[in-house]
């Protein structure tokens, strides 16, 4: 009995030592900065100065100004739309890569092809959409040459649409990856079994394949959500400053040294993300599935 206690003691000591680097790192670079942002959001901001006198002024300003609340709703709207489009484009892709392609090698090659755009810098990927979508861009030129349209389509660039197109392309792969992974783990025999029992493709998909891929959908949705909610570059470069997400507000506020307002927006954004992730994690028990 005495020896068991000793082993347990030694194990818990080892556990503590192993935890220390992680705890120190997370405290210094996550917990302390977040606490700091929350604290700064209550500071008093004047045009050229900031003081630590506590005030609710910045918070009041955020929730009473149409610009700020408007940008909160825009962020949520763009997030939901991009979440839907990445899912609509990503799921069939994942279905093909993860389930229909029988060779493991080929499915790995296809996944790598999906990742190739990431070999260039983020900004180049975003900016590359300008010559594609512009008034005299590739899409308009091709459509006009083919005689499908007479006038260039102007809504393609510097609108909400261009932001959605750009974000869908950039974040789609984060949806494809986790879903394809879950699909590739499905035992092919159970699909054969379902077919042998007389279920058609639709039933097999909705009753077997989709439920079993759901953890992948949730993980993909979390990836996409976290990245889209914090976005500012795509909307900055493709909307012509017409679409202001919370991320863009933070950039401008920080740029004009309005630390208190930037902190308020930062806290709001963090809370929104927290709610979204908590919501997704309620759909499936990831600990059980992965």
């Amino acid at each position: 009995m005495t020896s068991t206690v000793t082993i347990q003691d030694r194990q818990s000591k080892v556990t503590r030592w192993l935890l220390i680097p992680g705890i120190v790192w997370m405290s210094l670079f996550l917990v302390v900065p977040i606490a700091m942002i929350v604290y700064v959001s209550f500071w008093t901001q004047t045009t050229f100065n900031i003081s630590s006198d506590p005030t609710l002024a910045s918070w009041k300003q955020f929730f009473t100004s149409d610009t700020y609340t408007g940008s909160l709703w825009t962020t949520i709207r763009i997030w939901l739309i991009v979440l839907a489009t990445t899912f609509i484009v990503g799921y069939p892709t994942a279905l093909f890569v993860g389930l229909f392609v029988k060779s493991k090698t080929l499915s790995t090659v296809l996944l790598v092809i999906c990742v190739i755009p990431f070999w260039t810098s983020f900004l180049i990927r975003v900016l590359a959409w300008r010559p594609m979508l512009g008034k005299e861009g590739a899409i308009n030129i091709v459509l006009m040459k083919l005689g499908i349209i007479q006038q260039p389509i102007e809504v393609l660039l510097f609108t909400e649409l261009s932001v959605i197109i750009g974000m869908t392309q950039i974040y789609c792969v984060f949806m494809v990856g986790p879903i394809a992974f879950m699909l590739s783990r499905i035992d092919r025999n159970i699909i054969e079994a379902a077919r042998d029992l007389g279920a058609g493709f639709g039933r097999i998909f909705w009753k077997i394949i989709f439920p079993l891929s759901l953890p992948g959908v949730v993980v993909g949705a979390i990836f996409v959500s976290v990245m889209v909610l914090g976005e500012f570059a795509t909307s900055g470069a493709l909307s012509g400053r017409k679409v202001n997400l919370l991320g863009n507000i933070i950039v401008t506020q920080v740029g004009s040294l309005k630390w208190a307002m930037a902190s308020v927006v930062g806290v709001v954004l963090t809370v929104v993300m927290g709610i979204v992730i908590a919501g997704f994690l309620r759909i499936v028990d990831l600990k059980r599935e992965l």
């Binding site: 035992d187 025999n189 159970i190 079994a193 029992l197 007389g198 279920a199 009753k207 077997i208 439920p211």
Partner: peptide
């Protein structure tokens, strides 16, 4: 390897062919 539907209960597995066929 039995190829049971891992996300369904025993009775849902047994009834699968009758329900979805």
């Amino acid at each position: 390897n039995f190829a049971l539907f891992p996300h369904l209960t025993v009775i849902q597995n047994v009834g699968f062919g009758l329900t979805h066929g």
